[in-house]
Design a protein around this nucleic acid. Structure first.
Lengths: 155, 155
DNA sequence: AATGAAACCGCAAAATC
DNA sequence: GATTTTGCGGTTTCATT
């Protein structure tokens, strides 16, 4: 079984474009064309199609947490205190800007949140607000360091 | 106590620039200048300084996992099987391209990995390779859906 | 679906305040 | 540190194949 690399109907050239843009989000179409062996306008066309298809969802700057005064990252697992309550937790939590990501998960807990805060004190306050807003109990895992993050998958 | 929003020595204008680039990574300097109320070259200068300072670490395309044939996301917590072994787990794991992020954490487990794979079968094979490479036991939490992800923090 | 030409716009220096 | 100018390069569209 040689199942290495994702198999889809995505063309090799499109893969190359996505791969390049994943690491170089501001790469010019001129450079992109040279790297994937296509003319500027052909690359331009393909990128537009990838954007319209939804494969390319947008572009982000990678921002250093410490530089913006948010050096503390944590994962918070949520368990409903009332198992019969309606499952509208994401809606109840989305106003908390410290929550970067919210994942609905299978397993002991219902949700995993990834949060970024300024300090342990700010984390404590955030936990209080999460429990209040969503009626959940929390289990928090503090990140000590990040050996690597948001790597480009082998497209 | 009004500790709302991170307080650093970062200027409001720099915050505005980072905020804009976080959501619009390919925003032109012209647009950026208009949005933060600065001339093109002033913005350009500030962005270069933010990049040199390390506050701006780069730019990425946001790529839809399903479109590239990697629809399954999971969190994997690692516990060393030999507590006396040297802590070189990130090095032992970095060759596995399915691992997007690796966090060293405080708590019951030592590391949390965020991974992206093509299928449950691929996840099973990845777990086997992780256990082999790093001599760890694993606890896996499969992501069912992602209500929101990688939101822009309130810079 | 890719190409090359052409118009337009944005980038990135310079000098200047 | 911000602004204006200016040459250069990138973006985007169109006609063509």
């Amino acid at each position: 079984m040689s199942e290495r690399g994702p198999q889809t109907d995505l063309e090799p050239t499109d893969r190359a474009i996505l791969r390049e843009l994943a690491s170089n989000g501001r790469c010019s179409f001129t450079d992109l064309g040279e790297r994937v062996g296509l003319s500027v306008s052909a690359v331009h066309q393909r990128v537009r199609r990838l954007e319209q298809r939804g494969a390319l969802r947008g572009y982000s700057a990678r921002i250093d947490g410490e530089s913006i005064g948010l050096p503390l990252t944590a994962f918070i697992s949520l368990t409903p205190t009332d198992p019969a309550a309606p499952d509208d937790y994401p809606q109840r939590l989305q106003h908390l800007s410290e929550i970067e990501s919210c994942y609905s998960v299978a397993g002991d807990e219902s949700y995993i949140l990834q949060v970024r805060v300024a300090s342990p004190l700010a984390l404590e306050e955030l936990l209080r607000r999460i429990r209040e807003a969503a009626q959940v109990s929390t289990r928090t895992t503090v990140v000590l360091s990040t050996p690597f993050e948001n790597r480009v998958p082998e497209i």
